[in-house]
Structure formats: structure tokens, C-alpha cells
Computed example of a mutant assay.
Amino acid sequence: MKEKQHVYWSKVILQEWSLHLAATAKGLCFVGSQNGPFAELSNWFARRRPGHVLVQDHEQLAPYVAEISEYLQGARQQFSLALDLEGTPFQLSVWDALCRIPYGQTTTYSEIAAHIKKPAAVRAVGAAIGANPLLLTVPCHRVVSKDGSLTGYRGGLDMKTALIALEKGSLARGMQHG
């Protein structure tokens, strides 16, 4: 019988932010929605990574908590920690494209589809973005509709709005000090 793999989890709590995080030995594999319940994390693992056992371990997650806390304070624009993403080749290409959207900027679903050389796959791009397990670190909040309006986000539109405002505000503060 195959031994169950451990997935370590913890929680970032910072002002109005409370996020569940999970990581394997390979890297960060889940970032939950703002003030989301533990069930969001456990249900995701039951569906997407059966055979894994969740183990609370604040020490194991400390480097991830630190970088996400810095990001939420406007002090970090890029993440440097390892990621453990599992998905189809199409999903992985979309998630890679998301990571190339510059901090504080937005792009559209059709621009992502064009970037991955699948211009007709706009809906599939939307589905791949919706399946992104790493909110914040794989910045799907930077994707908007063609007319610039905010559309679906696993963390909810309030969280998406807050993240876009955080990045734009952080850039504006940086310009004032630079």
C-alpha cells in the first residue's frame, strides 16, 4: 500500500486578510480565498489531490507566510518560493502566462489566449484560470474582461478588487518615494 503524502498547511493572518496556505516538499500548492474556511482547503485536496494527508505545520509554512504577508503589505511584488502546481499541460501554460503579467497591471482573457497561441480558447483560458489553486502567487486577479470590468474570481470579486487596489496603491506609493 502506497504511503500517503503529507501536505503541510498554515494560515496567514494580517489585518483584514486571513488565508489558508498549503505546501508539499516540492513547494506551495494552495492559497485560499480571503477569510475562506478551512473546508475550502480540505475540499480542494479531497477533489484534486486524493491520497494526501493535511498536516498543520506553521514552521514548514513560515517562508510562504512571510512572502505572502510582505505582498499583502505592499512590500513584495514578486514571489521567489517554489511552487508545486499540478494541472493539464493547457492549465500549466495558462498559469505560466499569468505569472508573466507585471505587478500592478491587468490583462484580458483573450490576451492570455493569444499569449499561449490559442486565440480561440478564451473560454478554456477562463476555466483554467478558475482552476488556479494559487491565488495571489499565480496572479489570476490581474485578468479582467475585454471592457476592463472585473469578472469571476475564486476568492470573490471583493478580494480581486482589493488585490488590484493593493498593487496599484503600492506602485503609486513607490513612485512618490522614488
Rank of each mutant, 00 (worst) to 15 (best):
S33K: 11
A165I: 05
L54E: 12
H20F: 14
G87K: 04
K118A: 12
V143C: 10
Q105R: 14
D57R: 10
R49M: 15
K4G: 07
R123D: 08
H115D: 08
K4Q: 15
Q56M: 10
Y109T: 10
G36W: 00
I101M: 07
I13V: 15
S42F: 10
Y8D: 02
L72Q: 11
L41H: 06
L92E: 03
G74A: 14
G51M: 11
V125T: 11
L14W: 06
W9V: 01
L85G: 05
R123C: 05
M175G: 02
P63I: 05
P37T: 02
R173L: 07
G36N: 02
H177T: 08
L83T: 08
N35W: 01
P119C: 10
M159E: 05
C99P: 05
L92P: 04
K146N: 13
V53A: 15
Q34P: 07
R173P: 00
L81N: 11
A172N: 01
E16F: 09
Y109E: 02
Q91S: 10
A172I: 00
A128R: 09
F45N: 13
L28W: 07
A39M: 04
W95Y: 11
Q77E: 10
A97T: 15
G130S: 14
G169I: 02
L136D: 00
A62K: 08
F30T: 06
Y103D: 05
G169K: 11
A22H: 03
S170V: 07
T151Q: 14
R173Y: 02
S10R: 00
T161A: 13
P102D: 11
V53E: 15
Q78E: 11
F45T: 12
E59P: 01
F38V: 11
L72T: 08
G174T: 02
P102I: 15
Y109R: 10
R48F: 13
L85R: 09
D57I: 03
A162Q: 09
H115Y: 13
R76Q: 12
S80G: 08
A121S: 15
L171D: 00
P50I: 10
G74W: 02
E3P: 12
V12K: 11
L134W: 00
A22S: 09
Y109H: 13
E59F: 04
A62S: 09
R154A: 12
W17M: 15
Y8V: 03
R100Q: 14
I129C: 07
A97Q: 14
F79D: 00
A22M: 03
G51C: 08
Y103W: 12
A66V: 09
T151V: 14
V122N: 06
A128V: 11
W44M: 06
P63S: 03
L171A: 04
G178R: 08
T106R: 13
S33I: 08
A75I: 04
Q56C: 09
L98S: 13
L72N: 07
A120M: 12
G148S: 08
L21G: 03
S10P: 03
E167R: 11
K160A: 12
K160L: 06
K146R: 12
A62N: 03
L85K: 07
A114D: 02
H115E: 05
V122C: 07
K168E: 06
G148C: 08
H177G: 05
A162K: 08
I129G: 04
G174K: 05
I164E: 02
